[in-house]
Design a protein around this nucleic acid. Structure first.
Lengths: 151, 151
DNA sequence: CATCAATAGTTGATAGGTCAATAATATACT
DNA sequence: AGTATATTATTGACCTATCAACTATTGATG
């Protein structure tokens, strides 16, 4: 194995962890993180427009449309327009679906808890701050100037 | 916005960061992290079998096959069999490609460095350890027992 | 040696994401 | 009022990953 700097290892580990996390999550919950996010948001927000939902789950509007069409076809949600604004599509959970989704809340909580087992509250805070810092850094990066020293 | 526990925020932030990171990475380097991993591994390993490569980059064998076919079609790599084992396919960079990939090494280094700006060496170590711990936790999770307290 | 199992790679179906183009509606501005 | 611009959602083309099924080859074992 190549000798890697800590930075590079972090970069790789971040991606590896995320992948494992998503695939395990789906195996445990029976739906992808995005799908679960959508459903949980709907559980907490009675009705919502697609665009608001899209901002929340942070995936492309096209992907949201496709998720919602599937959920509608499965009878999990209803979609409808309102007189005020004929552009917006509102989304709402079907009553029968709510109970099932409430249960998945528990599973998600438990999942998240187990993946972060062994961290003290202080460490969790710190971890979150680190992730936030990376996020800020990433959004600042635009185009790489070459010639930086090797990492 | 919903009140979220720290744990849940971490979970969401982890995914968000990863997504931004991948998309910014591709914008800066002109290829996805997976693709760049493959090329960089090949730069360091003269020749390698697909299965060895696949273990390294940690994506599905099918995805590796497709990447390599594209790279071969683009003239970046060559693929060949050896007498010893007619199953294995060996992969090697074309000479002309090496120079270009060496340059992208610099870009990647710089990118990684910038995304981790503002961290002390001690913090980086700690960050890596935290990611590793999450990774271990994830691999331990198999099936969620319901009824855990809310997070 | 013949068969059975393991390994390597490929392919097709599917999933879920992106972007770009488009349609319909609402809003803002002379 | 009429036109330009915004917003909202949808669609199509594409990309990259997964899994399952398959082929070809090699190795192991009765």
């Amino acid at each position: 194995m190549t000798a890697c700097s800590v930075r590079l290892q972090i970069f790789l580990q971040l991606q590896a962890v995320n992948k494992e996390l998503c695939s395990k999550f789906e195996a445990c919950l029976g739906a992808s993180p995005s799908r679960v996010e959508i459903l949980h948001y709907l559980l907490e927000h009675e009705e919502v427009t697609q665009s608001a939902l899209q901002k929340e789950v942070n995936i492309d509007a096209a992907a949201v449309t496709r998720h919602l069409k599937q959920l509608e076809a499965a009878g999990t949600i209803v979609r409808y327009k309102k007189a005020e604004d004929q552009r917006a599509t509102w989304v709402k959970l079907e009553d029968e679906a709510k109970r099932h989704i409430e249960q998945s809340y528990q599973e998600k909580s438990q999942f998240v808890k187990e993946t972060l087992a062994g961290f003290s509250e202080a460490e969790l805070e710190q971890f979150l701050q680190m992730l936030s810092k990376v996020s800020e850094n990433v959004s600042r990066v635009t185009k790489i100037e070459l010639g930086g020293e090797d990492i």
